[in-house]
Amino acid sequence: MPSISSLTDLELVEAIKADDQKAYRALFDRYYKYLLVTSYAYIKDDNTIRDLTQDVFFEIWKKRNSLNIRNVKAYLRRSVINKSLNYIKAQRMNFEDSDESFDVPDRAKVQEELEASQLQKVINETIESLPDRCRVIFVMRRMEELPLKEIAAKLDISPKTVENQLTKAIKILRAAVEPYVSGGLFIFLFFGIF
């Protein structure tokens, strides 16, 4: 029989359906970190995202006999996001607009040596530091590519609030990349990446 790591996602799932524990472990190894990162975009708590991600895998094993998956990665991603959103709702995170101000991060110090990955890093860190509801809304729009209305429906808030939060997020991001825009570095970087 072929080595586990060479199996496709769907082949692994088929094996799991036949109680194959090695295949289960292989699927875990393949996607555990990915799901952690996915969940982290919504919930910035290491313990919570571990629990939620383990929930996803636990259910895969528990329901293995009745699994019907066509795209494994998408299925796992969907599962962990649903769990994350349910968690957020249970925490009663406030998603309605209020009169809050936000600080645009001060990134005055321009770095002399830049690598392409550094800009991504700045953006990653900025997304991470967005206020909770701003981040969640942004992630739903940007990573899940959900339409405004759907985000509003899922979080039970008005589309206008979603729009405001998205504008807020992109303004913060824009400010964060400002130091890299001067001197044409920014354009250079993008050509370096793509």
């Binding site: 990162v37 975009a41 800009l119 953006i123 990653n124 940007r142 992109i170 991001l173 824009r174 990349v177």
Partner: peptide, 10 residues
């Protein structure tokens, strides 16, 4: 910036 923001990772 908008493009890169889709590649969020940690």
């Amino acid at each position: 910036t908008w493009q890169l923001s889709a590649n969020f990772s940690k």
